[in-house]
């Protein structure tokens, strides 16, 4: 049995989730450049490369998650037949995805803070090179 409402739900959910991810990632990594420059002490090449890599990871994780929770389960107890049901299901999916995105955003921010703290710490002295010294009284 073909259910038209489900197709409509997917057609609304997919663009919303993908565009939301795109918008969040762009805003986050535009602002992350300052952090990266600070972490890598102004070396632009490696800072922007790292930023780009983080961005790709963010896209992969979030778009993957968005596609993973796409499926709407229909059974005889949950006939997917009214507009109200459509709104409720969509709200649950989009809202849940948005909360997940917020959590990921704060997680990335935490990573930046951590990197910045580590980079600004004074470097501990490395292991001293071994030197052969003559015993003083010989």
């Amino acid at each position: 049995m073909e259910n038209k409402l489900i197709i409509i739900a997917y057609a609304i959910y997919l663009p919303v989730a993908l565009l939301l991810t795109l918008f969040v990632a762009r805003t986050l990594f535009k602002n992350a450049r300052v952090f990266m420059l600070d972490i890598f002490h102004g070396k632009e090449e490696i800072a922007f490369a790292t930023n780009r890599l983080f961005e790709i990871g963010f896209y992969l994780m979030n778009i993957g998650f968005a596609l993973l929770i796409l499926k709407i389960h229909v059974s005889e107890y949950n006939p997917f037949e009214t507009t109200q049901k459509l709104i409720e299901t969509l709200s649950y999916k989009v809202g849940g995805f948005s909360i997940y995105l917020g959590a990921m955003l704060f997680f990335n921010l935490l990573l930046f803070f951590r990197g910045r703290r580590k980079a600004n710490q004074p470097k501990p002295d490395g292991p001293k090179p071994f030197k052969l010294t003559k015993p003083a009284s010989a």
Binding site: V24, S91, G95, A103
Partner: peptide, 24 residues
């Protein structure tokens, strides 16, 4: 400024997400 913007975005995402989720 960067931190403030990211915090605002996170606030919007989690709060509006919660508001919408509760509808179900």
């Amino acid at each position: 400024q960067a931190i403030n913007k990211i915090l605002l975005l996170g606030y919007y995402l989690t709060n509006i997400g919660y508001v919408i989720t509760i509808i179900s």
